Computed example of a mutant assay.
Amino acid sequence: MRRTGGRGHRLTRSWQRPPPSGRNQPMSNKTKVRRLAPGPDRDKVAAELKKKYDSGTSIRALAEETGRSYGGVHRLLADAGVTFRSRGGDRRSAES
């Protein structure tokens, strides 16, 4: 228990303390994006991501571009029926 400043004899217990104000929280550079519910909006976003992925854009680049997580983009691509490339990048450009 700790004494609260300026309140005289009142004590607060650790479980009664308010949550931290965010001063010590790391800042994220990603904006909050709402989770897409199943339906035409989700299908549209998935189709756009699929087109970009099929043209060679990486999942990480798509995630950064759209403000979504890697897993969220991967899930949308899987739902769109994408055939995923093997790990390690596009090998065809290195062989040319």
Rank of each mutant, 00 (worst) to 15 (best):
S86Y: 12
E65S: 14
T57I: 14
Y70H: 13
G89A: 07
R85E: 01
N29S: 13
K51Q: 10
E48S: 01
L36T: 04
R85H: 08
R35S: 11
L77W: 03
P26K: 10
N24I: 06
L49R: 01
S55T: 07
R35H: 10
R92V: 05
E48A: 09
L76C: 02
T83K: 15
G56F: 05
G71F: 07
V73Y: 05
P20R: 08
R87G: 12
G5N: 08
L62F: 04
R42S: 06
R75K: 13
E65A: 15
R2F: 04
L49G: 00
T66G: 00
E65Q: 14
S58A: 13
R87T: 13
S93E: 12
L49P: 02
S86C: 11
N29D: 13
V82D: 03
K32S: 05
K52Y: 05
L49Y: 03
D43G: 06
L77V: 04
P19A: 09
P26D: 08
M27Q: 14
G22A: 02
G81H: 03
R92N: 12
N24V: 00
F84Y: 10
R60M: 14
G6V: 00
R68W: 03
A80Y: 01
D90V: 07
L76R: 01
W15A: 15
P38K: 09
P19C: 02
R34G: 09
R7W: 06
H9M: 03
D79N: 11
R42H: 02
P26W: 06
E64Y: 02
W15C: 15
T12M: 14
R10Q: 13
G88R: 10
S55W: 00
S28M: 13
R92M: 11
K30Q: 12
G81Q: 06
G67K: 05
R92P: 00
P20E: 06
P38G: 08
A80F: 01
R17M: 14
A46S: 10
I59H: 05
T66D: 06
P20M: 01
R60P: 07
A61S: 15
S69I: 04
G22C: 03
A78R: 10
S93T: 11
S21W: 01
N24T: 10
P19F: 05
R34S: 10
L62C: 03
P38L: 07
S21T: 09
R91H: 12
A47R: 08
G81D: 09
G67N: 09
G89R: 05
R68S: 02
K30V: 08
W15I: 14
V33K: 11
S58Q: 07
I59R: 03
K52F: 03
R42C: 05
